[in-house]
Design a protein around this nucleic acid. Structure first.
Lengths: 235, 235
DNA sequence: CCCATTTATCTTCCATGGAAGTTTGCATGG
DNA sequence: CCATGCAAACTTCCATGGAAGATAAATGGG
């Protein structure tokens, strides 16, 4: 395994971040990209030398990652990159369903100007989905789709909801990258997104909730059985 | 401010917890009980001497508390006990609405035996609410009510949902204790709880969702305006 | 050869000291 | 009296060493 990426030593003019933040960001990224594969078990010392820092900031970053549910520290035995079982994917989707439907509902209840701005951005993200899909650029499509859902919660005006969504999205990222290749090309998503956007523009909170929820329920009912079917114990 | 409570040094036969866990639990409790008042700013060193341990475990416990949203560490200036603005209470209630309605829905979809067990416990908690209220024991009522809602998410089978609910409940605890004295005696809650329980016993997921949601929406629409009205800037 | 026991090695856990940064209070000059 | 510079006192931040515990390896007895 190669040396871990880490933001260049000095960014002139930028706010100086602590080593803990650096370690946290680098580790999170490494886990997302399966640079540390799920189930991998290593020591803080090892990670520290790879990041070129002492054990302390790594230790504290790992505490935060553990709180995020990405790793577990086994007392006196090292840190474990949490593998995800099909049951975990189900749990994550259930949280996403609850959180995003509420976010859509809240956004639909905000002032018209706010809704319009958000809807424009959401529309752009959806357009990007169509464009990338037309070119067969599946990773690009996934990125645009993820952007749509992130924008939805970021504009809902509830920071706690946003943070929860970000946390579970981080957890689900690996599974998402996997299923992207497995399932059929996702042509229906853009249409579902436009239904949500229309409800937001209309300020129809109930319909926004209903359509956002339906979109994620459909995703769960497609993805979870898929993962369970291929008999994957963990990922 | 007196010395902080801390589980007695040795509990024979019990699993030995780390000092970090001790500090985390003690601090969380102290914040809940406003032993550290909201807005209070202190140093890790000070907390360490009160807990009779070194700075390190306190520092790490505070990282976890920060992740929970209970404190913020201001670089080189100490740790701040997060005060809650009315807007925060609103955010918290919105999360609770989303999480608990989903939990009720999930629980209603579980096997009959599981639902029956949960319903029995929920019924007991609701009965305790009636009993305490009849005696004018408001703190006792609050405890029974909190138990009901905790049981609901604990039996829903989704650990992540449970954890999220626990986190926001911890945040809201101070506000909850305050409004308990301000608003009228909450006689309607027990009835709403029984509606939820009936839906759970019937295995009616949609109705469980609807009733659980309605119960928390009503709470939000009562509590949030109340807090905003009395002009409280923070608590 | 197999199993129990001991030993060695690796790990987190915790304490402590020094470095860097922030704030506070005081002295000094106007 | 007020503003300004400066120094002293705190604060977190990070490094490092030792202690306690867990695992794996080695060793000895059957």
């Amino acid at each position: 395994m190669a040396e871990l990426a880490r933001p260049d030593v000095v960014e002139v003019g930028a706010r100086r971040g602590s080593l803990v933040d650096e370690a946290y960001a680098a580790l999170k990224q490494a886990i997302r990209d399966t640079d540390f594969p799920p189930g991998y078990q290593g020591s803080e010392q090892e990670i520290a030398v790879r990041l070129g820092m002492s054990r302390t900031p790594v230790h504290e970053a790992i505490i935060r990652l553990q709180e995020d549910g990405l790793v577990r520290v086994l007392s006196k035995r090292g840190v474990l990159i949490c593998p995800l079982a099909p049951q975990d994917i189900r749990e994550i989707y259930e949280v996403v369903i609850a959180v995003e439907s509420m976010a859509a509902e809240l956004l639909a209840g905000l002032p018209e100007a706010t809704r319009a701005t958000a809807a424009d951005e959401l529309e752009a993200a959806t357009a990007a989905m169509d464009a990338t899909l037309a070119q067969g650029d599946l990773p690009g499509w996934a990125e645009a789709d993820e952007l749509f859902h992130r924008l939805l919660v970021e504009h809902c005006g509830n920071g706690r909801l946003r943070r929860i969504a970000q946390t579970v999205t981080d957890q689900a990222h690996r599974a998402r990258m996997l299923t992207l290749k497995l399932r059929a090309t996702p042509t229906g998503s853009a249409q579902a997104h436009r239904t949500i956007i229309a409800a937001l523009r209309a300020g129809d909170a109930a319909e926004a909730h209903r359509s956002a929820r339906g979109h994620r329920v459909a995703a769960r009912d497609e993805i979870v059985p898929l993962i369970e079917h291929i008999g994957l114990r963990q990922l």
